[in-house]
Design a protein around this nucleic acid. Structure first.
Lengths: 141, 141
DNA sequence: GTGTTTGCAAAGTGTTTGCAATTTA
DNA sequence: TAAATTGCAAACACTTTGCAAACAC
């Protein structure tokens, strides 16, 4: 049998977009394919833009930004802030944390269970914890 | 006896600047006074700039940025990233973590011992952990 | 006096926006 | 065809930089 990944149809991506209320346009399909069929990834808008272009799909940077935000709003991506001057988008939306390599500016996942955050103090009255981010900053090699 | 805080001389601030190899200029003194005599604070460059101006000390925004970076390099401040697009500077450089109030964009300290991060996985070979940041993101009231 | 620091205004970065043209359903 | 989406270029917010004038020692 051939490589299942390669002959995988677009239908599941199309369904995912439809479920999020987004029309499966050429641009969104190309971006979703890169984001969701490459395993767990951490990309900035510029990185993703360069990657679509190199796959020979013409998409503007503005559309990349719009799309990343739409995907984030519908829960398909999570935005990660490690560096005050660019946003990373993480395709893994399950509970987990990150190593941040200060030299290369790259992120590496730390599986959810591998870090335990305990004793988080009570949140100021009536408020709700949206998320706990743990970033382990690692120096150069 | 009078209020010790009020009559406290500038000499200790001057010493602190000198120890960091920084000349105690009018601008740096005014900024250091706001930063280090107001307890634990979390300020952006713009916030600090507004505050010096309202204390009637003329300092340019460029100098505020320069000074914040000089203070950070010499360990008097710590930079905190919670929001891609602006940096906060924390006058508390001891081990601790933060609540981030998404509505107001404000930070609240969580004392060092109040959160326990355990089982941080081994860092990729030969690298060193510089810092572990825990940010508890809290929704609006 | 000499080297440091400051302020200004210009430049830089990553990101967002307005709107006409294009595409999807 | 009606509504959604795209791309462009301009606008933005925050931050950095170059350099002459002002300042500290």
């Amino acid at each position: 049998m051939g490589n299942m990944t390669k002959i995988r149809p677009y239908s599941h991506i199309i369904d995912r977009l439809r479920d999020a209320g987004l029309r499966p346009t050429r641009q969104r399909l190309a971006l979703a394919k890169i984001l969701f069929e490459g395993g767990d990834r951490h990309l900035t808008a510029e990185m993703l833009h360069a990657e679509v272009l190199s796959a020979n799909v013409r998409v503007s940077l503005a559309t990349v930004y719009n799309t990343l935000h739409q995907f984030t709003s519908s829960g398909m991506l999570r935005e990660i802030v490690v560096d005050a001057s660019r946003s990373y988008f993480d395709t893994n939306t399950t509970e987990h944390h990150h190593f941040f390599m200060e030299g290369s500016g790259s992120l590496v996942d730390i599986p959810g269970g591998d870090i335990v955050v305990s004793k988080v103090p009570q949140v100021p009255e009536g408020r709700e914890v949206k998320r706990v981010d743990v970033i382990v900053r690692v120096g150069d090699a």
